[in-house]
Design a protein around this nucleic acid. Structure first.
Length: 172
DNA sequence: GCCAACGTTGGC
DNA sequence: GCCAACGTTGGC
């Protein structure tokens, strides 16, 4: 099993949204970058762990955990005229883009801000923190994965003045 | 195959 | 809104 990180703008698709959905499952579609596509197609397997990162928001950072519940299959939006992700150069017999299904596992105990991730010595080398990192699908090492889960849990324990429910509310 | 122009991402 | 960094496109 491997670990991954995916980015999303919460105004477009938020973790809170996924968490409150009936099956807590969504097709992670619309990826139109070849390197990210390769990670989806060649790397992700059912059962892999996924960190959800919110970009372009008031509070950017890691917000939740998900799991790959279906490995790569052709992204239907590439054939959908009128959809943002429509790709006229992609043929149904040779689809260019793929998506996976992700199912929310749980929110992190608190939002882990980008600045805090950067400041943590245990996260050196995390692709997200590398200069000009724009990939929307990135690998995460097992060590970094463990470290991130620990950071979220530890920080939440230290900050007992705020109940967990408040952290959850803030994700909306 | 080179590379300038352009579009997009994403932090601030 | 600004701007740096990056990916893609297309002329040559």
């Amino acid at each position: 099993l491997r670990y991954w990180l995916v980015k999303t703008e919460p105004e477009v698709f938020s973790f809170a949204n996924l968490w409150s959905a009936k099956r807590r499952t969504t097709a992670w579609d619309g990826v139109r970058n070849y390197q990210a596509r390769n990670y989806l197609r060649d790397g992700m397997r059912t059962g892999d762990g996924v960190l959800i990162y919110h970009s372009g928001a008031a509070e950017t950072g890691l917000v939740g955990l998900a799991e790959v519940t279906r490995a790569a299959y052709p992204d239907p939006t590439q054939f959908d005229r009128g959809h943002d992700g429509f790709d006229p150069k992609s043929a149904p017999r040779a689809p260019r883009w793929v998506c996976v299904d992700l199912t929310a596992v749980r929110p992190l105990e608190r939002l882990l801000p980008l600045a805090e991730l950067r400041a943590d010595p245990g996260l050196t080398g995390l692709p997200l923190l590398q200069r000009g990192s724009r990939l929307s699908v990135q690998p995460v090492s097992p060590e970094h994965w463990k470290r991130i889960l620990l950071l979220a849990a530890l920080g939440a324990r230290q900050d007992r003045t705020k109940p967990l429910s408040e952290n959850k509310l803030r994700m909306k």
